[in-house]
Design a protein around this nucleic acid. Structure first.
Lengths: 250, 250
DNA sequence: TAGTGGTCTAGACCACAAT
DNA sequence: TTGTGGTCTAGACCACTAC
């Protein structure tokens, strides 16, 4: 395989294999040449061959396993429909379990709740004072055996303290909207803000990601009128999710 | 600076600097130590020092300039509110210009339209036959002088061919909803699907990104009842945008 | 045992930026 | 001219996988 442009060798090699992945010559699951083979084919040192492959790995196109080789990633995204999960009627037991089962896998999750003082960032989102007491609940969701979503929810204890729904997952009612309804607090809209960034080391570990990996973060806030009554950071692997929204036009 | 765990040296060094960035010891704009300084401080080879810095670059936390050094990135995200941009009343000349001005910069864009045959993927999204004629319009949006968004829109020519709004940007009316209204086709909802992935080389070049960079992709479809009347892929740098959605709870 | 990817060393030459 | 990051070579040892 000849090289022709003034581009760095590792870029030309990476572009070459990237093209083969996109045009289907290297379909999902296909094995890439070993580093030795790349060195021989392009007549470059190991550093260059490695860097080309590393580039594709950083782009999330391939995965490498010590002792085996590199393989084109299979990507099937879990669809998370934000519109249907926030309705009082026809509420299912768990919107997440629905998402997972549509993706062909069973869903399950762990959770842990504790009281804490609101950080400045959380306080601003809940429109309370920094240091005010909040209920913090951390979740880890799984599709099959694999962790696929982290989330951390914050609720002002001013609303829920001492009630049967103070602990989100341990009371007679679950779901923010239904629980707030029992307190006479009626959620009427939810705001979701979507961003993308690199996974933090701890997130990468809990989600079984190899660094550097990208995540999408959904910062969600339930509102009753102008009042925020819950806010939550939802972290999902960037290449495993598709977030779906419906906007009605008036 | 001593190293203590069994982690690879480059990871320990990267974790070290990442921590300093997150805790504010290295604020946005701060200069990181040069490769030589990292080599001396941690007593490692240049490869290791480079790999640690490269890791932070791949995570999008820093930028490096030949001959100058590496600097902590400044991140100010443009907020794109999907809810307010699809309303018939109070429509502004350009939702994008609003986003850019809220981010403190003027907005502008280029566009180019041409007829083409629908690919299989586009045909499926528009629920037409593969090969049916479509109007393809490519946009490049800028905030200030910097390109910040690419998009490619597809409309079935079966709807618009021969009318005054056949070319989206060159007729008497602009905006998908308003243009379709003039044809008696009334858009009633829009679906947006958000994903994250590595930028393609061509996207990276047009958006002035250094590879590997991540982008968010919004796949948007305008519907009149069950009928898709326009679909569009919107590509934005993953670290420069925040996508905002409002869901009303009933 | 042989092959694979992961980590690391000690060099080298280059283009670019600051002085 | 000096220092910076970008690219590249030719080695080395290790842990893991498959045979």
């Amino acid at each position: 395989m000849a090289r022709w442009t003034g581009l760095p060798a590792y870029l030309q090699i990476a572009n070459d294999y990237r093209g083969r992945i996109f045009d289907g010559a290297l379909p999902p699951g296909a094995k890439l040449p070993s580093e030795s083979e790349v060195m021989a084919e392009y007549e470059v040192s190991r550093i260059v061959a490695r860097k080309a492959i590393e580039m594709l790995r950083n782009e999330g196109l391939i995965v490498s396993h010590t002792g085996k080789g590199s393989y084109v990633k299979q990507i099937t995204r879990i669809v998370r429909d934000a519109t249907t999960r926030y309705s009082r009627s026809a509420r299912s037991a768990s919107p997440f379990a629905n998402d997972a089962s549509r993706a062909g896998q069973g869903g399950g999750w762990d959770h842990e709740s504790h009281r804490a003082k609101a950080s400045a960032a959380v306080a601003e989102r809940l429109m309370i004072a920094s240091g005010d007491p909040v209920m913090v609940t951390a979740y880890l969701f799984r599709a099959g055996a694999e962790p696929v979503q982290l989330s951390t929810s914050y609720e002002p204890l001013e609303i829920t303290a001492g009630t049967s729904v103070e602990y989100p997952e341990d009371g007679p009612v679950t779901g923010v909207i239904a629980r707030m309804d029992t307190l006479g607090v009626h959620v009427d809209h939810v705001i979701e803000r979507v961003t993308s960034r690199a996974a933090r080391p701890e997130e990468a570990e809990r989600l079984h990601l190899t660094q550097p990996s990208q995540v999408m973060v959904v910062s969600r806030t339930h509102h009753a009128g102008d009042r925020p009554v819950e806010t939550c950071d939802i972290v999902v692997p960037g290449d495993r999710y598709e977030l779906s929204y419906r906007i009605d036009v008036h």
